[in-house]
Simulated assay, not measured.
Amino acid sequence: MINLNGNLVKEENANLSVYNRGFAYGDSVFETIRVINGKIMFWEDHYFRLMSSMRIMRMEIPASFSPEFLEEEILDLIESNNLRSSPARVKFAVYREEGGYYTPATREIGYTIITEELENSFYLLNEASYEVELFKDHYINSGILSSIKSNNRAVNVLGSIFANENGYKNCLILNENKNVVEALNGNLFLVTERSIKTPPVSDGALNGITRKQLLKIIKEMPEYQLEETSISPFELQKADELFITNVVVGIQPITKYRKKEYSTKVGGELLSKLNVKARLG
Rank of each mutant, 00 (worst) to 15 (best):
I109G: 09
P222E: 00
L214P: 02
R96Y: 02
E97C: 08
K136Y: 14
K136C: 08
S202Q: 08
M59Y: 01
H46L: 03
S160E: 11
S28K: 10
G159W: 00
E127P: 15
F122A: 09
F42K: 09
V18D: 06
V29M: 06
P200I: 03
E12P: 14
F30T: 13
R34Y: 05
L215M: 15
V191G: 01
E71L: 14
K197P: 08
L8P: 08
I33Y: 05
P200L: 05
R279C: 15
L236A: 03
E98L: 05
E31K: 12
T210M: 07
L77M: 10
E131F: 05
L226W: 08
G38H: 04
S86G: 11
D45C: 12
V157K: 00
N179M: 13
S53R: 05
R96S: 04
Y123W: 06
L50C: 03
A24M: 09
G204T: 02
F162Q: 10
S147W: 03
K277V: 08
K169M: 04
S263Q: 13
S232E: 07
K39H: 13
E131S: 10
M59N: 01
T245F: 05
A24Q: 12
N13D: 08
I173T: 01
I109A: 12
T264E: 14
D137E: 06
K277S: 07
H138T: 14
N185S: 10
I218F: 01
V191D: 00
V181K: 05
L50K: 01
